[in-house]
Design a protein around this nucleic acid. Sequence first.
DNA 1: TTGTATGCGTTATCAC
DNA 2: GTGATAACGCATACAA
Lengths: 342, 342
Amino acid sequence: MQKEVTIYDLARELNLSPATISRGLKKSTALNKSTVQRILAKAEEMGYRHNNFASNLRNKRTKTLGIIVPRLNSYFMTSVLAGMEDVASKEGYDLIISQSLEKSELEKSNANTMFNKRIDGLLISLAYNTTDLTHIQPFFDRQIPVVFFDRSFPGVESTSVVIDNYQAAYKATAHLLEQGCRKIMHLTGDLTRDIYADRLKGYKDALDEYNIPFDQKRVVTSTLNEQDATNFANAILAMDRAQRPDAVFCANDVSAVYCMVQLKQHGIRIPDDIAFVGFNNDAVSRMIEPNLTTIDYPGNKIGEVAVSCLINLLKGDENVKNTNRIILHSSLLVRGSSLKKK
Amino acid sequence: MQKEVTIYDLARELNLSPATISRGLKKSTALNKSTVQRILAKAEEMGYRHNNFASNLRNKRTKTLGIIVPRLNSYFMTSVLAGMEDVASKEGYDLIISQSLEKSELEKSNANTMFNKRIDGLLISLAYNTTDLTHIQPFFDRQIPVVFFDRSFPGVESTSVVIDNYQAAYKATAHLLEQGCRKIMHLTGDLTRDIYADRLKGYKDALDEYNIPFDQKRVVTSTLNEQDATNFANAILAMDRAQRPDAVFCANDVSAVYCMVQLKQHGIRIPDDIAFVGFNNDAVSRMIEPNLTTIDYPGNKIGEVAVSCLINLLKGDENVKNTNRIILHSSLLVRGSSLKKK
DNA sequence: TTGTATGCGTTATCAC
DNA sequence: GTGATAACGCATACAA
């Protein structure tokens, strides 16, 4: 281990006090411009590296943000993280990232770990089956700011950065209705997650707008994974003609794709027999044939906004503190899977 | 900000010295068992949290490992990270994760950031176009251990955790040959990355084994992304019948899938006209029809091994220091895309 | 087995 | 403008 250069070394070399060096390094305006220049130059020359630990110890801040996500393996999540990393690093914050793998248990344990690591703030997108926020309570208790993104919690006092899932689902469903579909099924996730509840509501209201009676049997709740999507497809295949849907609106792209694969293997033509709309604009939506119509929304932006928001909270910004929801724009990308030939 | 409990608080409560508390907290065997118990109990009771910063400052270690990956958005990478997180957290290490997005420039800047954050060790999978290791030199200079995984660098003195890409590619190609394919094309990535060079070699040697002359025109280098895969497919479509391949071996699944999609849209039947083999066992390999034959290898395991290795290095383990490559097992998963009907 | 004293590198509070 | 000093919380060499 090589010896590290400290402010004392710089002080000695420049015949200044460590205090002055410390100020110079952060370009304090209370110092002579020329002094600052000399200090910066010397630091560069001697290969000085700021020591976060001493600094954190002194400041009682860790300059670290914790992130808990359900999974990292979607294009959406990757974009979110990229956006977060971008803003965070500009503001000098580190990120600690962990996955809950959609399990509430793991989410709790991750939150606990982060609490013990004394992160300055937490960014979290909830797991499927998280039904309470007791594991977040320690953060609330210590006034450590928490920002929810994408998957939030109803009625929570923290800020949430989300899209208008209701609106997006409404648009998706209305699009199918415009294509002439009348028996539209909806494959959704756990309805305790507000994003899925909101999407269901959008679906319902669109039907209502077109005077199609809502039918509970047309809504299927699942984990949206490969197995469930295939099961869902099999259920459709088992229906008699009169029952069969002429369209399916899935709450994510992955489930839509697996479902389409299964249906196609059994001779269902898409979109002629059944039209499809997904959600997320994942890469897979462009791999399936026909390409999947889906809802696109900006992961990057969500990440950027969430971190900015958190950092403003850390700075004690009162405006942010009173902001409950930040809603970002989403749009419908129409592709082959939902375009009925006229 | 609530006041934190320190070892001094515990010392006062228990009428012991801070030194004893410090020892007790790490269950030093030099202490009375009962003393340790009392300390642990009190710590629990008072809500004591260990302060990493004070500890790191004292120890001159950060207990943080840096990870640089090309991208986070594949199932493989997610598995690798999960494996890394698992072992690292068991050993009390934090992870800082960053993406190079396949750009050497970004990789350099990330490495630099991590160097300045004083990570104890670095885990890196190189970007496509990284041709030198000058950005890693500072780590070598300061004897900060570096472990390469998946994508390594030829001739580097550090340990690498990889699979036998040569063997895997050999198996993949031999499988196609056994299916009766004779005009096998290979879509590969940047050949400066040894994994792609090795795969090419495996492809060549398998051909050789079957006495098929190697033809440079049958090998296409690309970035393996959506656009390149589609272009590659178009090039195949533009060939006259005699030239057209009867099989394609792609260096990853994503390119194979995009290529298949494009070919299918132009009436090519898979596997009858052209058989396909990919690499990675990504989720998309099971979304395409027919399902893609691919090479499966354990991301989790690679992550676990890489971190164990790095931690042993940090402990000064000489055996690891002298280990140049750790090679993990991979296997061929045969699926519809390469199974010619007899 | 436990206690004393000190330093890790930085920064904030006073001084001057 | 700049300097002296203490404090952040922990861990270790040395004493007892």
